[in-house]
């Protein structure tokens, strides 16, 4: 099968679970001239069916958990979910609120967690680039599954569940290092 470069131009879709806006405006700030993630070919699109990477901010609650699920299910495989900000990671300061179920991982599998309140644009860039490594690994797994269906049992289990321990990524990512990250993910 020919090699397609999903990681060269990943499209992202953003949904605000129930965040305070802090992380949302930082996600938007990433798309602005100062941080300009379009340098990496990343485009923010409104349509989940166009997207490769799902950026979620904020916690999930009773009202929006179906919305989050719906958006996730509409995205085509391979897809990567990045939880941005501590609210999306684990519920954060709102985890004790009566209407908060917890982090996004309560509803959908999450591939990368971005800490910070609010998450800094630099951290978001790091995370999206980390996500690309995972995306490439998932895609490779899918390709292998198509080429040799017997060899692979299931394509791309969620990273959070399969990763045995904390994986330390280097602070600055280049496109070359994405491959290294992909290796780490496979382990």
């Amino acid at each position: 099968m020919s090699k397609a470069y999903v990681t060269k131009s990943p499209w992202v879709v953003h949904y605000d679970g129930s965040s305070c806006n802090g992380c949302d405006i930082e996600v938007l700030a990433c798309l602005m001239p100062m941080y300009d993630v379009e340098r990496f070919g990343i485009i923010n699109c409104g349509n989940p069916k166009h997207a490769d990477v799902f950026l979620v901010t904020g916690t999930v609650n009773e009202q929006n958990k179906d919305v989050v699920k719906q958006i996730y299910e509409q995205m085509p495989e391979p897809k990567v979910v990045v939880a941005i900000g501590i609210c999306a990671c684990s519920g954060g300061i709102f985890k004790d609120c009566y209407n908060v179920l917890g982090g996004v991982d309560q509803v959908i599998p999450v591939d990368a967690y971005v800490p910070g309140c609010a998450a800094r644009p630099e951290a978001i860039i790091d995370a999206v680039v980390t996500g690309l490594g995972i995306l490439q690994a998932k895609r490779d797994a899918m390709v292998e599954a198509i080429d040799a269906p017997a060899a692979i049992e299931a394509p791309a289990a969620p990273a959070a569940a399969s990763a045995p321990s904390a994986v330390k990524y280097p602070p600055i990512f280049t496109m070359a290092e994405i491959k290294v990250n992909a290796e780490l993910y496979k382990k």
Partner: peptide
């Protein structure tokens, strides 16, 4: 509305 409701006013109890 209600997609972002967290209920943080009640947090003052804890």
């Amino acid at each position: 509305i209600g997609y972002i409701h967290r209920g943080l006013e009640k947090l003052c109890e804890t």
